[in-house]
Write a protein that binds this DNA or RNA. Sequence first.
RNA 1: GCGCAGGUGGCAGAGCGGUCAAUUGCAUCAGACUGUAAAUCUGACGCCUUUAUGGCUACGGGGGUUCGAAUCCCUCCCUGCGCA
Length: 405
Amino acid sequence: MFKFKIKNIHKKSRTGFFDTPHGKIKTPNIATVATHGKIKLLTKTDHSRANPDLTIANTFHLFVNNKVKEIKKAGGLHKWSGFKKPIMTDSGGFQVFSLGWGRAHGTGKVGKIEIFFEASRKFDVQKFANNKNPVKISEKGVVFNYDNKKYDFTPEKSIKIQEDLGADVIFAFDECTSPLHDHFYTKKSMERTHRWAVRSLNAHKKKNQALFGIVQGGVFEDLRKKSSKFIGGLPFDGFGIGGSFGEKQMADVLDWSLSGLPEEKPRHLLGIGKIKDIFIAVKEGIDLFDCVIPTREARHGILYVKSGKFAIEKGIFAGDKKLIDGNCGCFVCRNKITRKELHCYFKSARKADNKKLSTCDVDRLVLGKRLATIHNIHFFKNLFGEIREAIADGKLDKLEREYLF
RNA sequence: GCGCAGGUGGCAGAGCGGUCAAUUGCAUCAGACUGUAAAUCUGACGCCUUUAUGGCUACGGGGGUUCGAAUCCCUCCCUGCGCA
C-alpha cells in the first residue's frame, strides 16, 4: 500500500502514481478542498458531476462542528460522504496559523512585499503583540480560542481524530508560521513542529492510512533546508511542504524545502494555489496540491478559462450567449449553459430595499455558485491532466505559456 | 373640476432650515481571495481640475422668505389614489 511509482521525469518535474486504498492518484494532481467532508454547496450529484480526483477535509473544522463521531460511526469519510476516490485530511496545523497569527497579523500565508515593510516598521506595536493571538501554542500542543470556546489540540489528538475520520492520507500536526515572523520565532516554531512530527508518527497506528510529515522553516534558507533534512529522514509515507512563503520566493523556498526529501516519496505542497504558483511548484518537483481557490473563487463568481479568469457578475456577460469555454468538457459547458444564464443566476438574487432574499432567489444564486464550482473543479482537474501529459512530452514550458494568468 | 398623497443622483428610497454633493440598498466599474473564520471582503461611483478643510452645477420648472433652502411660502407642470 502507498507505493509511489515515478513514471516520467523531465528536469525536476515528475509524473507518477500514488497507490491508496481508494485507488491510484495520478500525479501531479490537486485535491479539491472539502473542509467539512463535502465540497461547499455541492450536492452528491454535483460531486460526481465535478468528479475531482481526490479531496481533502479538515480535522479541526470537523472536530469543532462535532462531526467526528458521526463520521466514525458511518465508517469513515468515504462512506459518510459517498465519495469513493482518495481523501486526505489536514491535521489542523493550518488553523494554528489562520485562526491565530494570521488573524493577529492580518495576513495570509503567502506574504506580500508591502506587508513585510509594514511589519518591520510596526513590529513592536500592539497589533503584533502576543496577547492578540487567539491561539495559544505550547510544547504540548495548542489551545484554540474559537467561537468563544476553547479547543485543545495535540499531535496525538489530531492523529487520533484523523484515524477516526479514516482518510487515505493524513498529515502530521504542525504549526504553520506567519510570513511576518522573524528568523528567531520561525526557528523555534520549526523545531517544535519537528518534535510534533515525531509524536505524530508515534501516535499513528492505522497502517491503512498514509502519514505525511510537514516541512516548515518559513522564508529562511537555512531553516527550510534543516527542516527538509529532518522531516525527510523520518519514516513518513510522503511529505507536505507547509508554512509561509514570500510571494516572489516560491521557487527558492520549494528548492530548499525539497532538498532533504527522498526522491521516491510523494511531495504535497499544502494550500497552493494560483496557476502561476502551480507551474512553479511542478517545475520544482511537487506531486500533489490542494487549494481553496477553485471552489472559493467559484462561489465568488470567478470562472477559470485558459485565457485567464473572469468575473461572471460583470455587466458585459448579461447578454453573452457564449459558453464559459467552448472547449471545456465540464458538466456546465457540456450542457450548453451560457455565460448569460450564469450571470443571471448570480445577479437575480441580489437583495433590494434591505429585504431578505426569498428562498427562490437563494436557490438561483446557489445554483449559479454550484455550477461555477463544478466548472472550476473541472478546469483544475483538466489543467493537471495537461501538466502530466506535458511533463511526459517534455513540453511543460510550452503548456505554461498557454495559460495566461 | 374638487380632495388627498407625491415629484431627490442610472433605479429604489432616506433627509424636511445650516455640519448635504446629499444615509442606505440595487445597478455599474475596479480590486482581493493560495493546508476555507469566506454563498465573502475592499475601493470608486454629479462634472472639472493644480485631487483639495478646491471650483462648478444640482433634490420637477419659475418666483419668494432667510445671513443660509432638497428642506418654509406662492405659482405652474407632472404622477398616483379617492370623489364628481
